[in-house]
Amino acid sequence: MEILRVENLCKSYQMGEVEVKALTDASFSVEKGEFVVVLGPSGSGKSTLLNIIGGMDSPTSGKVFFKDEEITGFDDKKLTEYRRKRVGFVFQYYNVMANLTAEENVELAMEIVENPLPIDEVIEAVGLSSRRDHFPSQLSGGEQQRVSIARAIAKNPELLLCDEPTGALDYNTGISIMALLSKLNREMGKTLIVITHNSDIALMADRVIRMRSGQIIENTVNENPINAEEIKW
């Protein structure tokens, strides 16, 4: 079942007198429960694509459908609701609230939705049971990213968007985070879109979308995705 469809998406910025094309004619679709990796070097337009899919940015042209709804036609209010109910974000630099504990960070997201997942289950799922009362300054980078993931899934969204989730982590921590995301995808059935420049992570994905200079150059289905523990980079 198709959960997301991107049609001829374009995005250009005006930088002084120069027009920068961040995204050109991008089209693809994602099935429900799919693990998609958007792969590309820095400046290839993958973050722009993720922002538009996540309702954080608007395209210059083209359409994005979430299920049957065209989110690119949403006003601010509807976009906020879309971000609140349908999408969970995980950022490269975790971006957790510094003056809230791990548990409170998760609750921050839960408070604005009607049917969040049980807090204990979420904390348990990300492996933070023993660290739930710690403030971000008392947590390692990996633990902070786990908080960020917990915050994203606690709202029980259908789509999980991860922007370079391992970009700021060391190898082992990166592996464990990818393993966690993969587990959430498999066990909770969350549709997962991960953008990364790390091609090894693509080995885990069901679908790999390769980007360069704002264009999708390849959209392939990975018939044999591997486990996170098997990846090496």
Partner: peptide, 16 residues
């Protein structure tokens, strides 16, 4: 600025 962006990304609206 970043914190506000994150809150908006999570789903908090401008008024909140």
């Amino acid at each position: 600025r970043l914190k506000i962006g994150i809150l908006k990304a999570i789903g908090y609206d401008n008024q909140q």
